[in-house]
Nucleic acid binder design. Structure first.
Length: 287
DNA sequence: TGCAGTGTTGCTTC
DNA sequence: CGAAGCAACACTGC
């Protein structure tokens, strides 16, 4: 699910509430969590949070850092949950409101905090990654992660250097986290629609002009999506259980059969690229 | 009913 | 090495 704008939204939400709190306990029904996570994090204080690409870093006291990657359907929620009864083991929100969303039945990890609230990982497909690492090992952990799509150091020349030699299809290249981090299936479609580039075009066949258009589409699309608090295509919610609304502004992603918003008469088409769906306007996005 | 499709990534294979 | 295919999982909708 979450790409850079959704992760940024969640991290910004959590930055407002988590720093200063201590972790009192950990609950999970996932088998793949690190065995000693409870021993490692209980009693630790949350110091600060950071987003790197689509990764979430929660810095703890004791030189430890909690790393969360939400993968497809994961999202972190901040609230207060309880199990309603012994037969029904699903966690529900104590307070009425958006956190009582039925999607909360997919809560698989809970960090119990010192203010009686909890940090929950809700993840229908259970792809999400939760790890604890020593803070000084972060550079090693992220050594293969490409420059963040919103990094100020991502100049046009840097972008060109990273992208222009790749033989792969531009959509796939944009989604390659080891090159530029943060862009996924939704925002690669949106960026290419805005830039007017066909998603199948090989990156090394792009001209200077086309590269410039793609480069100058990345930040505006991502920043507009952050302002709209992300895209809630299926079950994405922010840290307080609210939907984003950028999906209402999508140009291409999941707009199959609709008129192109450039007004060029094109009808948004859906094709398959590398096992993913790709949406584009056949009129202004030419090969 | 069954199967294709869903925001990601990493492992395997060529 | 680069590129491609698929598995990890659970649910929805045709």
């Amino acid at each position: 699910m979450p790409e850079l704008p959704e992760v940024e939204t969640i991290v910004n939400d959590l930055k407002k509430v988590l720093p200063g709190l201590k972790i009192r306990d950990v609950w999970s029904d996932l088998k793949k969590l690190p065995k000693n996570i409870k021993k490692d994090v209980v009693g630790k204080k949350i110091l600060k949070l950071e987003r790197r690409g689509k990764n979430i870093l929660i810095y703890l006291s004791g030189n430890l850092t909690l790393l969360v990657h939400q993968k497809m359907t994961g999202h972190l929620l901040y609230g207060e949950y309880q199990k309603p009864n012994l037969k029904n083991q699903k966690w529900i929100a104590v307070e009425p409101g958006p956190l009582q969303d039925p999607e909360n039945r997919f809560i698989h990890v809970l960090f119990f905090l010192s203010n009686s609230k909890q940090l929950a990982l809700c993840d229908m497909r259970k792809f999400a990654k939760v790890a604890v690492l020593e803070t000084e090992k972060i550079p090693e952990e992220f050594k293969k992660l490409g420059i963040d799509a919103l990094d100020k150091n991502l100049t046009f020349n840097k972008f060109k250097e990273i992208i222009a030699k790749k033989a792969g299809k531009i959509k796939i290249v944009l989604m390659d986290q080891s090159l530029i981090s943060g862009i996924g299936n939704i925002y690669s479609d949106e960026i290419l629609w805005l830039a007017g580039t066909h998603p199948l075009k090989p990156a090394n066949k792009l001209g200077e002009r086309e590269l410039k258009k793609i480069y100058s589409s990345i930040k505006p699309v991502l920043i507009k999506a952050i302002k709209a608090r992300g895209s809630s295509y299926i079950d994405y919610r922010d840290a307080f259980g609210r939907k984003g609304y950028y999906q209402e502004m999508h140009y291409a992603y999941q707009q199959t059969g609709k008129k192109c918003k450039k007004g060029d008469g094109g009808i948004i088409k859906k094709i398959k690229i590398g096992g993913r769906s790709a949406h584009f306007c056949p009129v202004h996005q030419n090969l």
